[in-house]
Nucleic acid binder design. Sequence first.
DNA 1: CGCTCCTTTGAGCTAAGTCAAACCCGGTGG
DNA 2: CCACCGGGTTTGACTTAGCTCAAAGGAGCG
Lengths: 247, 247
Amino acid sequence: MNRASTHPQLQSIKVACSNCNLRELCMPVGLDEQQLKRIDEVVAVRRKVKRGSTLFRNGEPFTSLFAIRTGFFKTCVATEDGRDQVTGFQMAGEIIGLDGIVHDHHTCDAVALEDAEVCVMPFDRIEELSREVAALQQHVHKIMSREIVREHGVMLLLGSMRAEERLAAFLLNLVQRLHARGFSQSELVLRMTREEIGSYLGLKLETVSRTFSKFVEEGIVEVKQRHVRIVDTAALKRIVNSQQGSH
Amino acid sequence: MNRASTHPQLQSIKVACSNCNLRELCMPVGLDEQQLKRIDEVVAVRRKVKRGSTLFRNGEPFTSLFAIRTGFFKTCVATEDGRDQVTGFQMAGEIIGLDGIVHDHHTCDAVALEDAEVCVMPFDRIEELSREVAALQQHVHKIMSREIVREHGVMLLLGSMRAEERLAAFLLNLVQRLHARGFSQSELVLRMTREEIGSYLGLKLETVSRTFSKFVEEGIVEVKQRHVRIVDTAALKRIVNSQQGSH
DNA sequence: CGCTCCTTTGAGCTAAGTCAAACCCGGTGG
DNA sequence: CCACCGGGTTTGACTTAGCTCAAAGGAGCG
């Protein structure tokens, strides 16, 4: 059952879900001993993904969801004519691959922005087990619903905010998620380029850069390359609901 | 069990799901007799929603998903500071309310744009039954995944298309969905105002209006009020991937 | 050390927004 | 029946946020 020997990217599991420190992020809570043990079985295997390479790609058959253990991903969709759009950035404890369920193949690309490791969870096994463990079933539903709600937020951002509001919202969101994982509330290292940020926010990379510079001038943040330090969180929050940007 | 008498908006069910002509839109396929019968039990009741009134509202407790039987809805999210964004338009056979699952309360408003009737499906019943009927379980997963994929498309539209592309994509999408319901491939009646279209597409109502006028000048569509007739579908499709709009 | 990729900044342009006026159409009431 | 009203729509004139193009600095890596 140890497939590590046959495929360099795959490796057998050392840490069970029930012991994983990301447990409260990607698993249901309040399970008894026995249920926990069964859920451990959902994760078939781990897989390492090198920075710059894809976990899955648009068009590939869908078989599994992936829980990010370490690392950082972007997901992006593309049109035939080559333009593409980053639809999200995902970090440890988050689940990717939900897009693949409808048509049994993926409809976006997931690219590692830094070396990463994911838990591979075969979807048929998830379905099987969540028919038996109600808490798991609910958890799966909530994860999907959360993704829908998240995307509503992005639509609001893309549809009705100005550049400064978008970037402010983006930074606040990132730092808040990092904080939930035990990192600083005010410092972060961007794992993506200005162009990727721009794609996500519906802006050009130059606009992202200029907006960063503006924030720096105003003393709201300090920026050194990809390292960002938020000096005035309140100001960022004020920018996000400044209302003047209703287009 | 007939609650019609106690509440004017509610009424007992005359058409069972198994006989509903929208069956193939909102229900799983390939069920046997007995499973069908059980699924009929999911729909507790029907509810009528008058044009202009809400099916549910941001903040209200979530209990049920709704399958639209007749009518037309919009869903919209709002920020504290009062600006809002239409996140989608839904028609017969589509499911709304998925946003409520994560936090047990709704995070957007659903407003009827014409008199409508929905099937109320208590979510705990759906969960219960989908633990027993694998086909229903899969169906629920696919519906949620489909919504995620749809929103990816909207993000692409909002993030990287110009006004003409957005409107063209919008019209093609609407007419395609109407066609799947047996309506014309080329004629449609818009149920929403220019402002609502604009909100959905991230444009101002004047821009929507001007873009319509432009399409009329170019002979691509005919517009009389809310009645739209698509004269040149191919031209619309060409506009959607015109690529020059990559911003 | 030189290359490549990323980022910043400037200068000018343009798509879409803002503001304002007029129009259209269905509904209401005199 | 017609005048009026109000929401929705169209169109024009002007403004502007963000885009495009271009050039010039870093920073990391072989």
